[in-house]
Design a protein around this nucleic acid. Sequence first.
DNA 1: GGTGAAATTTCGAGTGT
DNA 2: ACACTCGAAATTTCACC
Lengths: 159, 159
Amino acid sequence: MSRPDLDPTDRQILSILQRDARIANTELADEIGLTPAPTLRRVRRLEEEGVIHRYVALLDPKLVNRDLMVLVRVTLDKQTKQLFHDFAEQMRARPEVLECYLCLGDTDYLLKVCVPDLDAYQRFLVDVLASIPGVRNTDSTIVVKQEKYTTSLPLDDAP
Amino acid sequence: MSRPDLDPTDRQILSILQRDARIANTELADEIGLTPAPTLRRVRRLEEEGVIHRYVALLDPKLVNRDLMVLVRVTLDKQTKQLFHDFAEQMRARPEVLECYLCLGDTDYLLKVCVPDLDAYQRFLVDVLASIPGVRNTDSTIVVKQEKYTTSLPLDDAP
DNA sequence: GGTGAAATTTCGAGTGT
DNA sequence: ACACTCGAAATTTCACC
């Protein structure tokens, strides 16, 4: 994996785009003290290098009826490569599973699941999770309050 | 909180913008089968209602030197309102803490922390977490692989 | 990195259904 | 109330310095 050098101007651009992906290039140029042409060139380069992975709209979960978030710890029966691969594949296919992490330690996977209500979550647990072969144990933690949620990575010491 | 009715066209728009926030309005209009003017009106309405919360650029953690993700379970000493408030405030102030959830059950908080390496994580644990008054216990789980990460909420059964 | 000009997009006003 | 067409203003995006 190549490690593109990010100069302070690149970091400024990334920092702004992490906050507001739809900013006009002219305004972005103003904020970083360049003219639009070189600004756009830098943005395109950052996109091509993959530093900027994608641009997305973040929705309000309440307003699209996804008010319940549950964090689920999952352990699998036997730790075979095939079992792990299949489990991850199933998680990628389920839209209510927003994040899925393979972890070190007792827990094999941690999931972040977003559903409308407890009824929907119960269905997810029974119809989806419990029906996947190799799932030994699940432990669900209900989120009471989202104290912080950001997609912005710090850029202080990037190479 | 108002619950705006989302018709199928609105859901189409939201679904596309969750995938690509920088799509041109003309292209968005093409994809949903409307002309640009009413398409833009719908987008603006969804923004004003707060259904669209914000637009962000997602970066590649590897390429900005944030390759280590750790999930931390935190329990506090006594469950006073002030202690919880102060803890959440500290987490909001730390850029390496991307997500912080108040949870039901044994664990009080779950954090998602992104740092360059184990050395940086050790400093976070000692200098930040351990120095916050009221933190009784922490349990760190290192993420080996991010099997899935999406910010897209499903829109199937939104009201 | 900057300049200028062409191509494209945004977004209002006015019209129709 | 919702969508369409038209046109001016702004923005994006070139080739070239």
